[in-house]
Structures are given as structure tokens and as C-alpha cells.
Design a protein around this nucleic acid. Sequence first.
DNA 1: GGAATTTACGGCACACGTAATAATG
DNA 2: CATTATTACGTGTGCCGTAAATTCC
Lengths: 285, 285
Amino acid sequence: MTPRALQSLVAIAEHGSLSRAAEVCHLTLSAVSMQMKALEAELGASLFDRTTRPPRLTPLGRAAAEEARALLAAERRLRDLCAGPGLAGEWRIGFIQTASVRILPGFLARAAAQAPRARFAVETGLSESFAQAVARGRLDAAVITRADPVPPGLRLVTLASEELVYALPPGAQRLAPAEAFARLRFLQFAPETGIGRLVAAHLAAAGLQPARRVVLDGIEAIMESVAGGLGFTALPAPDVARYAGPGVTMRPMRDPALTREVVLAVLAGSPAEREADRLAALMRG
Amino acid sequence: MTPRALQSLVAIAEHGSLSRAAEVCHLTLSAVSMQMKALEAELGASLFDRTTRPPRLTPLGRAAAEEARALLAAERRLRDLCAGPGLAGEWRIGFIQTASVRILPGFLARAAAQAPRARFAVETGLSESFAQAVARGRLDAAVITRADPVPPGLRLVTLASEELVYALPPGAQRLAPAEAFARLRFLQFAPETGIGRLVAAHLAAAGLQPARRVVLDGIEAIMESVAGGLGFTALPAPDVARYAGPGVTMRPMRDPALTREVVLAVLAGSPAEREADRLAALMRG
DNA sequence: GGAATTTACGGCACACGTAATAATG
DNA sequence: CATTATTACGTGTGCCGTAAATTCC
């Protein structure tokens, strides 16, 4: 049951004789004859009626040729999958929350158009666990917030650099940040997230002690709370812009400025590293 | 790209390492390693990330394993098609008109239940051309009206013996056949058909000369015409019974009696001959 | 008799096991 | 240091081409 024998069987079904099939397959008539004999022996069935010249396919032989066609089509699909240029295969990619909203849809759309032989199994989660998953090979790549130190073995490709800004609730437009920390609730993004960790470290380094603090684990929830006057926050400017309600004001951070990098993380030395730039290009748009 | 190598690839995808795959496939670790190396060379793609132990499948490798699964499933379908007992394959069978109405539906229903691995490509036509088609191998079998002499090389299995009867129109119940031939139109089934030929030969042998004759090529059309009073006819009793309208009377032929045999014709010596009895059993019900 | 298929035979390629070596965790 | 994979090497299987024998038309 070598693929070549099945190819010959299909050729016989198409051309009606072993000799013509042999020509088409660039084989000797003798080789084709032996292939068919071996095939019949292996399948334990008679595929040909040999009481006539040329031998005719039996009903079973015709059906077998049909199945052989399907098998050969599967083989061609396998070859095509690997042969073509560009991204191919099943990519397991993690996206942090902000990226799943701002990057993922465009990425999938562009990938479907420009890399039709690639499929994507996407999951959402936190930067830290994604970094570990990429390092361990459970994921091929992940879009995360860059955190120092860079885990060893990971290569990072920057997708975007985003300035963090304060978002102040309605009625607090004039409030200086220092006053805000004294007088308002600080709505803090959960510190197990990349952004949350960055903000917490920033506060500690700048010696900023919020009078009151509420920890939330969703950006949209935080911004809705800001719009509702519950307090202020510090988040990437694009997210603030995305979710800011009426009356919410955006104020650059000057204590000092803080940016977060959205990066694509891949395992250094892995095959994914060679495709990292291509993936990043699809993610940037 | 031998099937065994693909089997190994799938096993690696399932079990996560070459060594476990080798166990499962009853192969040496070395053999599996070489299979994968050969596979990558043939496909021109790297399926494994070998910077780690055990090597991990690349995204392309995972997708390739998926396609390999499909290919192996196709192989299993081919084996299953040929392995099982009973009728299998694609049978090209011809049915004459009367058989297509009275035998074909039940045959297909019983075959679907009792021979699920068989498919049937059915066509309708005339006994004579079907006999030729079976003799030439264009059809595997045909249900036809037996005609003497039996074409050489054909084997016939009787499915049914049907008496031919006269069908007389409303108002002619009392008419003796001899009178009918003198006074009524004879609605004759087209003589290129098996029944038509039989009837024509019978008339000639019995010296019966219809006063007027109309040739039609459909049994239903003939019987509708009889019911409409256009004339009388001679047809197999089951067909007359099937289509007889109100007032139509059936009268046995006594000049002398005439029967037609419905037979299954197969090519002697062909693989189909070995299945002829099984086919006939499915046709008789 | 002639075309097509099957059988016989020889060579070559290749898949696999054993064993030694290398690389990763 | 143990586990796992790769490389080296030898053997046997089996695929295929050439050529002779056979079979059907």
C-alpha cells in the first residue's frame, strides 16, 4: 500500500489499462502489474477481473480507486501545507487583555488574508504566565506587557510603546496628581497584571501613597468607575481614550513619565523566532 | 513519506516525545528519529524544534500531524472497504423499465441495510443493449427480460417468471381474444424492448394478425390507453394489475400461454458472477 | 499473430535494528 | 548524571527495470 501503487490504481481507473497507466506514471508495465498484485494481496480482495484484456476493475476495485483518490488528495494537502511560502501551521498565541481588544481582531483579519495556510489558537491571560508558557513551549508566542528583567531565553519584539496617563473623574479636571493621590480613591489595576505591576512599581519609586486604593482586574471596569466619579487611575493612553466616559480628563504622568511596551514574546532559538517579525508585522497592521 | 512515518508523526503529536511514540509504534527510537528527518527533508520544512529535549513540534509540525491523521483515516477507510464481508464497491447495474418500478426500490432499500459498503450506479434501458453492456463489461449486472438465444458469455439468474395476459378495455369483457384481434386496436409494446419482442414473436407464431396496431414505448401509457377504451394489449400480469384502470379486464393467454422471465444477467467468469446470487437475493426481497 | 499482461531475475535503494555518540534538563 | 535524541553501520526487505513467458483478442 505505497502511495505510488495507489497512484497507479487511480491512473488505471482513469485510463482503463495497466499499460496506459504505466506510461502516465512513468513506470514499467511490469511494475504496475506487480504493484496491483501486491495491493490485492495486502487488501485481501480482488480489484481486477483478469479474465479479459485489458483487465477490468471490479466494482470493489472502482470503489478502492475512489478511496485511493481521497487518500492521495490528503497527501497533496499535506505537501501543500508545508511547501508554500510564508506562515503556515497551527500557532498557539496568547494575548493579554488589552491586546486581545486592540490587536487581536486586526491581526486575525490580516492573517486570514495574508497567511491562509496558518491557523491560530488564541488564549487570553496575564503577561507573567504567558512569558512562562512561551519559555516552556506551551505557547508559540504571546503578546504581553514588557517587564524587567526580561525572562532568560525569551526574545521580545516591540509592537507598541504606550504612554501611561492619569485619568481623572468628572469634577477633578484641575486637580494636580499629587493632590489627587491625597484626596481621591486610586483605582489600581490588579498588580498580577503587567500594567498593574508597572504602576505599583512606579508608585513605590516615586513615593506616591494613595490615600485610598481599590484594586480592580478589568480596564473597562476601572474606566467606568472613573467616569462614575469613584476615583482616578493610571493606565495606557489608548485604553483611557477607548473607554473614557464624558467628563473624564486625561493628564500625562510627570512624576516621572511612564510608558509600557507591548511586545511579542517568542522563545529564542525556536522556529517561532524566525517568524516573529512576520507575526509582529501582522499585529501592527 | 511512508504511511508508517506519518503514523509516527501522529504518535509524537499525541504522546509528546519520539521515545514514547517509538514504543507505541513498536519501533526503535532511532527508526522514528530517522523517519522524521526523512519526512522533514521530503517536505522541505522543519517539523520539530530540536533546541529542546524532547524535541517539540513546531506550529507547522502540529498542523502536519493533523493532516497526517486525515491521510491515515483515508487509508483506514480504504482497508475497511476491502476487508469486510459481503457486497462492497461500486456496482453499475441496469434495470429495464418494469424492473426499475417493481424491483429497484426494494433492492436499494435492502442493499442499504444489508450491504452498507456497496454503492449502486443504476441506469434504465432496454434488455438487448443491457445484455451487450454486461457482455462488454460496461455494466456489472443488469435486470432484463430473458430472450432466446442467451447471448454467449452471459449467465442468467431468474428473478421472477411472469405470465403475460391480455388486458381488455371497458365494454369488452366478453370478447374472446381472437375477436379482439379482429375488432379492436392492439396496443403493442415497442418491439425493441424485451417484452415487445416476445409479444411480436408470439403473434407471428400463433398467426394472430391485429386488425389495427399502435406501437407505444411505455407500459403506463399503454394501460392508460386500454383504460380509455383505445384498444387492448398483452403484458405481464403484474404490470397489468399495477396500472389497470376501472373496467379493464385481465384474460389469460391461451393461444398458447406466454411467460417472460425477469433475469439478472452477469458476465460468466467475472467477479460479479460470484456475487450474482447475493444480488439476486436482494432483488427478490 | 500481436498487443497486453504476468512471471523471473538482478540490482539498487531504503527502512530498520544495534550500538556508539551527543545533547539537554 | 540520567534521559532522550542523533549518528554510524550493517542487514534484510522490497520496489523497479529488463527480458522471457503467457494469455487473451
